[in-house]
Amino acid sequence: MKELIRELTEIYGPSGREEVIRNVIQEKIKPLVDEIEVDSLGNLIARKKGPGKKIMLAAHMDELGLMVTFVDKNGFLRFSNVGGITPHILLGERVVFANGTAGTIGCEKIDSWKDLNFQKLYIDIGASDEKEAKEKVNIGDVAVYQRGFQDLGKRIISKALDDRVGCALLIQVLKEIESPANDLYFVFTVQEEVGVRGARTSAYRIKPDYGLAVDVTRTGDTPESETMAVSLGKGPTVKVKDTLIIVHPKIKKIMEEAAEKAGIPYQLEILERGGTDSGAIHLSREGVPSGVMSIPCRYIHTPSEMVDYDDVVNGVKLLKSILEKPLE
Results as ranks from 00 to 15, higher is better:
Thr86Lys: 05
Val190Ser: 13
Ile245Met: 10
Phe186Ile: 05
Phe70Trp: 13
Gln172Ser: 15
Arg164Phe: 07
Ile177Ala: 02
Asp209Cys: 04
Leu283Ala: 01
Gly195His: 15
Ala59Met: 04
Tyr210Cys: 03
Leu244Ile: 00
Pro326Arg: 01
Ile45Gln: 12
His248Glu: 05
Glu328Gly: 12
Glu132Thr: 06
Lys234Arg: 15
Cys167Leu: 10
Gly103Phe: 04
Leu91Gln: 12
Val71Arg: 02
Val82Cys: 04
His88Cys: 03
Lys53Gly: 00
Ser202Pro: 10
Leu116Asp: 01
Lys28Cys: 02
Ile206Glu: 00
Ile177Thr: 02
Val20Leu: 12
Leu77Phe: 07
Tyr299Ala: 07
Glu324Cys: 03
Ala58Gln: 03
Thr69Met: 13
Tyr12Ala: 01
Val137Gln: 06
Tyr12Gln: 05
Gly52Arg: 03
Ile105Trp: 09
Pro326Gly: 05
Tyr145Ala: 01
Val173Arg: 02
Leu90Thr: 02
Gly92Pro: 10
Ala133Met: 00
Lys159Leu: 00
Phe149Val: 05
Lys154Phe: 13
Asp163Asn: 04
His60Gln: 01
Asp310Leu: 14
Leu44Trp: 07
Leu32Met: 12
Lys154Ile: 11
Lys207Met: 10
Phe70Ala: 02
Glu7Pro: 00
Glu10Asp: 08
Arg47Phe: 03
Leu91Thr: 08
Thr69Lys: 15
Gly16Ile: 13
Ile11Phe: 11
Thr276Pro: 09
Glu257Ile: 07
Ser321Lys: 01
Asn74Tyr: 14
Arg164Val: 00
Leu116Ala: 01
Lys159Val: 05
Ala98Arg: 14
Asp141Cys: 01
Ser202Asn: 03
Ser294Pro: 12
Pro236Phe: 07
Gly198Met: 05
Gly263Met: 07
Val312Met: 15
Gly50Trp: 08
Ile322His: 05
Glu305His: 10
Gln267His: 06
Ala229Arg: 15
Ala213Trp: 02
Ile29Gln: 14
Leu152Ala: 04
Gly42Arg: 06
Val214Asp: 13
Tyr185Lys: 00
Val82Gly: 00
Arg218Trp: 14
Thr219Ser: 07
Lys48Asp: 09
Phe97Ala: 01
Lys134Tyr: 09
Val24Gln: 09
Phe149Ser: 09
Glu37Ile: 11
Val288Ala: 03
Lys136Cys: 00
Trp113Ala: 13
Gly153Leu: 07
Pro180Trp: 04
Glu272Gln: 13
Gln191Arg: 11
Arg22Cys: 13
Asp151Gln: 10
Gly279Ser: 08
Pro14Ala: 08
Leu8Val: 06
Ser304Leu: 11
